[in-house]
Design a protein around this nucleic acid. Structure first.
Length: 487
RNA sequence: GGCCCGUUCGUCUAAUGGCUAGGACACUACCCUCUCACGGUAGGAAUGGGGGUUCGAAUCCCCCACGGGUCACCA
């Protein structure tokens, strides 16, 4: 009689979807799908000072773009933010009354207390602790206040917070699905503020209460939360609630192994998407950062990952976010796209210049793209004939006279073809190669001048592909220009 | 600094006591070839160090080193 699996992603609306968060989202999503459970989006907006306008819409857009749309919770319908599901509200700030009630329950159960210490006093205490090299913690000054006195002061309007009254000795024993058993001495755990002086709860209270109320079965989150697990478990225990199971994911790192940060490159999913990384590639890549189902494959679809997913097999150590491999994966996905889909994505991303030649060039350069944003330059180089010296037209093992002869003959040959003949690069190649053999020529001395005449470049796509791009008239014009140069 | 977590090729990883530690990216060489790209083949490249346990250790235990996380009225 296993209870249904319900997992959540609970970001604070402070900006964009971080690439590390994408992996957290993905693992939650995979876990939910694997267990036929529900994936929930809850927005943790209890710190009003950090709220960023448009952040939720932005975040949600990234989730949708990666096809990781939550089943339940906060959603964006057009331009309005709505709740989807029976466990709302899913905007944490709207649950404030509940949090407050739970905080008073905790006081009732002698697991929390009022604290009237000023910021100045707290600063002073911290300074002292720093000087004497003591652990930096709240000195529990208000913990000994009588409940009656504290309540009176609070009732009179004395500015206060509510702190958790954690045990002071022994160890907190925890279990993590990835790391196994973990123990943290209570002496290391602070009397954390759970209700701020503005009356809003902090993460520790809000997240645990909401996880309980929303019947979250498994909490899959970043490793940075592991050290505060004792507090969370303490709340579950004193409230008499069944705690969810926990999995703390290893962090994503910069190349220098520090925590992945903005300083060293893009960290926003939207930035990667805007640069023309395909969501499929991004998801595939990020899934394999910290976990791998078989060891001898790199390409996986999301659905397949979901059936294979095993949270207990996730690595314990952080993974460097290495863009080189992402590029390779993305190039692979670009090559696998159906042509129409490929062109459509280029167009949507703003990477496809106007014009029939540009579209033809887009087909030709596809295999050279690591990301869609590479397309405009590649297309331009294929469409435009560069300025070049006449000497470039001569193949290394050939002569100017031979180049002129070949180009003249080719010009004549192409002149007799109709426009549709140029629409089939593969057909052209077959026929021209045969013709070259018939004429007793070599590929190099023929194709090199042809290709240079069409591209004006040492390096370029092949001559047949270039003819496909230019079409008949432009192709002939470029041959004429080449012959002119050598005249 | 206290506490917690971690440590397999440069990077992502596989191998949960038992073949010469496997794959991928990147790199190099070769092949294909009119150039580039694609593709193909091959190659170099790792169990942080030291002690144990065991017939046998990347794998289990201990110590050290190193890295990361955390120590807010932020999440």
């Amino acid at each position: 009689m296993a209870s249904p699996v319900r997992v959540r992603f609970a970001p604070s609306p402070t900006g964009f979807l971080h690439i590390g968060s994408l992996r957290t989202v993905l693992y939650n999503w995979l876990f939910a799908r694997h267990h036929k459970g529900t994936f929930i989006l809850r927005v943790e907006d209890t710190d009003r000072s950090r709220f960023v306008e448009g952040a939720i819409e932005n975040l949600y857009r990234s989730l949708v773009a990666c096809d990781l749309t939550p089943d339940e919770g906060v959603a964006v319908d057009g331009t309005t933010i709505i709740d989807k599901g029976e466990y709302g509200p899913y905007m944490q700030s709207a649950r404030r009354e509940k949090h407050l009630r739970y905080a008073y329950d905790l006081i009732e159960k002698d697991a929390a207390y009022y604290c009237f210490c000023t910021a100045e006093r707290l600063d002073e205490v911290r300074k002292q602790q720093q000087l004497t090299k003591q652990p930096i913690m709240y000195d529990r000054h208000c913990r000994s206040l009588s409940k009656q006195e504290a309540e009176n002061r609070a009732a009179v309007g004395d500015e206060h917070v509510i702190r958790l009254k954690v045990p002071t000795e022994g160890v907190s024993k925890m279990h993590d699905m990835i790391r196994g058993d973990v123990e943290i001495p209570w002496a290391q755990v602070d009397d954390q503020v759970i209700i701020k002086s503005d009356g809003f709860p902090t993460y520790h209270l809000a997240a645990t209460c909401d996880d309980h109320d929303m019947e979250i079965s498994h909490v899959i989150r970043g490793e940075e939360w592991l050290s505060s697990l004792p507090k969370h478990l303490f709340i579950f225990e004193t409230m008499g609630w069944k705690a969810p199971e926990y999995a703390h994911l290893p962090l994503l790192l910069n190349a220098d192994r520090s925590k992945l940060s903005k300083r060293q490159g893009d960290v926003a999913v939207e930035d990667y998407l805007a640069k023309g990384y395909l969501p499929e590639a991004l998801v595939n890549f990020v899934a394999l950062l910290g976990w791998n189902p078989t060891a001898d494959r790199e390409i996986y679809e999301k659905e397949e990952l979901a059936t294979l997913f095993d949270i207990t097999k996730v690595n314990k150590s952080g993974a460097v976010f290495n863009t080189e491999k992402l590029d390779w994966l993305n190039a692979h996905y670009i090559k696998e796209l159906p042509v129409d889909d490929y062109l459509e994505r280029l167009r949507k991303g703003g990477f496809l210049p106007e014009g029939i030649m540009a579209e033809r060039a887009a087909r030709v350069v596809r295999e050279r793209l690591a990301k869609l944003s590479d397309a405009p330059e590649a297309i331009a180089e294929t469409v435009d004939c560069a300025e070049y010296p006449s000497t470039m037209l001569v193949w290394k093992k050939s002569t100017k006279e031979e180049a002129i002869a070949r180009l003249t003959a080719i010009r004549e040959y192409l002149f007799k073809k109709n426009e549709t003949w140029f629409g089939d690069a593969v057909g052209m190649e077959r026929e021209l190669l045969l013709w070259i053999v018939e004429m007793g020529w070599g590929n190099g001395d023929t194709l090199w001048p042809l290709r240079v005449a069409l591209s004006g470049r040492e390096k370029s796509p092949g001559p047949f592909e270039l003819l496909f791009v230019t079409g008949k008239d432009e192709g002939l014009a470029r041959l004429d220009a080449a012959l002119q140069k050598m005249a």
